[in-house]
Amino acid sequence: MSYEPPTPPANLPTEIVNTLNDSTPEQLRDIATYAEALVEHKDREARLEESADQEEVEERPDDLPDDVPAKATITIKEINDNRYYYWQWRDGNRVKSKYKSPVNPAE
């Protein structure tokens, strides 16, 4: 083990280096534990997002319009005693719909 302090990575912001240099050994151990857990969490989120993007492409129905997301579901709406299929999906706090076709009474 060297008696010289370690050299911080060049891409690490000066503020973080100064904070680490001012920290106690116990704080540094806690920081290291937290940093490892945070890396695992962010890596997992990235994998899940990548997986969801791939599933969205694979599961996209053939008749789904380009401006409708793959997560949309088909809903039946009744308007003036007539029934219609609509694509429906959540966009933030709103629910959006797009007309698909009339419901065939024979179904």
Rank of each mutant, 00 (worst) to 15 (best):
P102T: 15
A10L: 10
P5A: 06
E26Q: 07
A46Q: 13
E59R: 13
D22W: 02
N80H: 12
E59S: 06
E55P: 01
E4D: 11
A46H: 09
E78C: 05
N21T: 10
V103Y: 01
R29D: 06
A32Q: 05
T75A: 03
P25Y: 02
I74F: 00
A106N: 10
E78H: 01
T73C: 10
W87V: 10
I16C: 04
N104A: 05
W89T: 11
L12C: 13
L48V: 05
D67W: 04
Y86A: 11
D91P: 00
V17N: 13
W89E: 06
L28Q: 05
T24I: 05
V57D: 04
V95F: 13
V95E: 11
P102D: 12
W87T: 13
P5N: 08
P105T: 06
L38V: 00
Y3V: 03
T73A: 12
T19F: 07
H41C: 00
E55M: 15
D62H: 04
P25G: 04
Y99C: 09
S51I: 05
R94I: 05
N21S: 14
D63W: 10
S23M: 14
P6L: 12
A10Q: 13
N80C: 00
R44K: 13
W87Q: 04
T73F: 13
Y86C: 08
I74P: 01
D66Q: 11
Y34Q: 09
P13T: 09
S97T: 15
R47Q: 14
Y34I: 03
Q27V: 12
M1I: 11
I79C: 00
T14V: 12
E78W: 00
N104L: 05
